[in-house]
Simulated assay, not measured.
Amino acid sequence: MRRFAPRRPGDVAEMIREDVLGLVTTHDAQGFITTPLPLLAELDEAGEVRALIGHFARANPHLARAEATPRAQVSFFGPHGYISPSMVSKPDWGPTWNYRLAQFEVDIELQPGAEDAAIRALAEALEGDRWTVERMGARYAGLVEQVVAFRAVVTASSARFKLGQDESDTSFAEIVAALGDGPLARAMRSQRG
């Protein structure tokens, strides 16, 4: 196993559940365009991400460009942060940056007519039973008309979780203690072997 590879098969899917906002980037004759979008992972039987579900606003110029050039890269950047030498008791220790990153090469398939299902799935994933789209009343129908659903089929993926796996037990414990109980410290603990 590569040193900074996720430890378990479901770690990337869990990251997407936690860090829902992905950066969708396409490239065409006009150059690159990136849109941050909340996305849900569709998993295969092994728990690997096989597609990402989301929606573009009809007013977003990226929609027409993604329709014309559907090949894209989607990146999720999880908790990250500077790790200062002041966190570690080793005098020769140098600074670093810890992070979680997952990237997917995808083919975007626009799915007109699936907007209601895409929005409801996203609301349920983020809200659970605290809130449903019905609470919007008549305004919801107008919202659905302003977006186009898509399914981004994964053709390749990579993940790098650089979270202190190469640190000694003492240095790792000092870094986690200095970070407190925030998202980066929790991510680090989840990847410690």
Rank of each mutant, 00 (worst) to 15 (best):
R130G: 04
E115C: 04
E127H: 08
T69F: 11
D129C: 00
A66P: 02
D92R: 10
I83C: 00
I119V: 15
A121W: 00
S89C: 05
S86E: 12
T96G: 06
E67Y: 03
Y99C: 01
G81K: 04
A118I: 07
W97V: 10
D116Y: 06
L110N: 00
Q73I: 13
E67A: 14
V106Q: 01
Q103V: 14
K90R: 15
A64Y: 04
D107K: 11
A121S: 14
E127A: 11
T96W: 08
A68H: 02
P70A: 09
L122M: 15
P70N: 06
E115K: 02
D107E: 14
L101E: 11
E109F: 08
I108A: 01
A64L: 11
L63Q: 06
Q103S: 15
A102V: 02
F104C: 05
R65I: 05
R120M: 07
I119N: 04
Q73W: 11
V88Q: 01
W97Q: 07
E115G: 12
A118K: 01
R120G: 04
S84R: 04
E127S: 12
D107Y: 08
R130N: 10
G128Y: 02
L110W: 05
W97P: 01
E109L: 12
W97T: 08
P79D: 13
S75N: 10
D92S: 15
P95D: 12
E109Y: 03
I119D: 08
I108P: 00
R65F: 09
I119P: 00
P79V: 10
V74M: 06
R65N: 03
F77Q: 12
Q73V: 15
R120L: 07
T69M: 01
D92P: 01
G113P: 01
F77D: 01
I108V: 15
F76P: 02
T69N: 12
A102I: 04
E115W: 07
K90G: 06
D107Q: 13
A121R: 13
F76I: 08
Q111T: 15
P112S: 08
E124Q: 14
